[in-house]
Design a protein around this nucleic acid. Structure first.
Lengths: 114, 114
DNA sequence: GCTTTATATAACAATTTGCTTATATACTAG
DNA sequence: CTAGTATATAAGCAAATTGTTATATAAAGC
């Protein structure tokens, strides 16, 4: 299990602010499991490409994800060494694995090739 | 330790939205430990009485707190039977006990009589 | 070089948030 | 009944949020 970090009020609320949006919460649920490139995420979520990029930028700014360029693609994945690691894991661990939106996303994920 | 509940994306994000505000996060940190009446909270936090009432209303609407009238006072406390119980405990458990704002609040709490 | 593809950034609109001040409600004490 | 205290609610406002469309940037292939 993840160890517990002691976060400041500021850091803690900043992280909750990032995860409180449904799109970003589900995005993080995916990124914590494996890396994705932006175009895969755009195909999975029902929002525009700029919207996805903007969400990812927030994550990156908060130190929650890594970005890696490979060719013309940019891959994003969860930063397991971040200070908020334990918090994020605990929050996402509360999400119902059978949640309709999550299940739908995972189904889409299977059929996507970028 | 608290057991884990499976929350929907909606319920989970709703709860994060409530806790992402610094005032409300700290408010909940207090309410999870013991009950407070509104005037005690007003004295402790540096916001107006209506601001506190409005925060408490959000909590109540989300089922996170109980409200009990006794005389002219209204006492609020955490609702331990709510669906989001485990989530809230886990989030608040990540807050540094030595966090400046929290310590300051606890100090004030000691000297307040309503 | 030009074109296509992947992604980021800018600019903007609609909505939501979190406070404030002003006011209403309700209980208590005389 | 009246005055005071505790609390809620309403109205208004500035700032933040989240999406959109339009445009810029950068790599890949010809």
């Amino acid at each position: 299990m993840t160890e517990t970090a002691a976060l400041s009020t500021e850091k803690l609320t900043e992280t909750l602010k990032i995860l409180h949006d449904p799109t970003r919460l589900l995005l993080m649920k995916l990124l914590i499991e494996k890396e994705y490139c932006v175009c895969e995420l755009v195909d999975m979520f029902e929002v525009s490409q700029p919207a996805i990029s903007q969400h990812l930028r927030k994550y990156k700014k908060a130190g929650l994800v890594y970005e890696e360029r490979r060719g013309q693609w940019r891959y994003y994945r969860f930063n397991e060494t971040c200070e908020q690691h334990a918090l994020v894991e605990k929050i996402l661990g509360q999400l119902d694995e059978n949640d309709e939106q999550l299940v739908k996303l995972r189904t889409k994920a299977e059929s996507i090739t970028c």
